[in-house]
């Protein structure tokens, strides 16, 4: 059993490959999380414009990308778009797909956060001559983010896990590298190793999330 799933020799052999994959997963996360947040921020701020010609297209956009499976989206970008003469490459495809998919999720979370800030906050700032954008930036967003911090963190956790989708477009991230090592060694140990690494990387975040959620519950008490 141990020889099959946790073979020490294979761990030693696969280690450099896996480590490179871990590095790429971290790098990828550091790119796609801010990208998704940026997209989400844009969507959430657009949502505070209460004009029908902004509202309806925005709702359609968010619904569409939340309903569209990210794996399908990624494969379409990678394997479909070249038929339209647009070859983006694996990394760019992952970036675009995450911007669209996780941006929509972050957008909904941030929109809920913005809605949770009382209108009086905006009125107070506007009454002192602070402009619309600056009111959003200095008064509304800091409170909005604090109000939805557990949801933002939870979504970020999902995004980091989703970076494993990059393996289908040959991004050399953790899962992809583990699959490589597995096929080279004919042994599932590298996959188990990758799973352990994912867990060790994300477990502190999960703990933090639990604490935030408990605190939010206590605060509501």
């Amino acid at each position: 059993m141990l020889q099959t799933f946790f073979n020490l020799e294979i761990i030693e052999a696969a280690w450099p490959i896996i480590l490179a994959g871990l590095g790429n997963t971290v790098l990828l996360s550091l790119v796609v999380v801010p990208l998704g947040l940026l997209g989400g921020l844009g969507l959430a701020m657009l949502a505070s414009v209460r004009k029908p010609w902004v509202r309806w297209p925005l709702m359609a956009w968010v619904d569409f990308f939340r309903a569209f499976p990210p794996l399908v989206l990624l494969i379409f970008l990678y394997a479909g778009l070249p038929f339209a003469g647009l070859e983006l490459g694996g990394f760019a495809c992952v970036c675009v797909a995450f911007f669209l998919n996780t941006g929509a999720y972050y957008g909904e979370i941030l929109r809920a956060g913005i809605d949770s800030v009382p209108a009086g906050q905006t009125e107070a700032a506007r009454s002192t001559g602070v402009g619309r954008l600056q009111t959003m930036l200095y008064v509304v967003l800091p409170q909005a983010v604090r109000n939805v911090l557990p949801d933002l963190l939870s979504n970020t956790l999902e995004v980091v896990k989703l970076t494993s989708l990059g393996s289908v477009v040959a991004m050399p991230e953790l899962l992809f590298q583990a699959r490589q090592a597995q096929s080279l060694t004919y042994n599932p140990t590298p996959i188990v190793l990758a799973a352990v690494i994912y867990f060790l990387m994300l477990w502190p975040l999960v703990r933090l999330l639990s604490r935030l959620e408990n605190r939010a519950l206590a605060g509501r008490g």
Partner: peptide, 26 residues
């Protein structure tokens, strides 16, 4: 100047921060 029934102070800033936001940004 306007003063509201429910104060509408910015809860994430100090008293001084509340008073100086518009002075600095506007």
């Amino acid at each position: 100047g306007m003063v509201f029934q429910s104060f509408n102070l910015y809860p994430h800033m100090t008293a001084l921060g509340n008073v100086t936001l518009a002075l600095r940004k506007v």
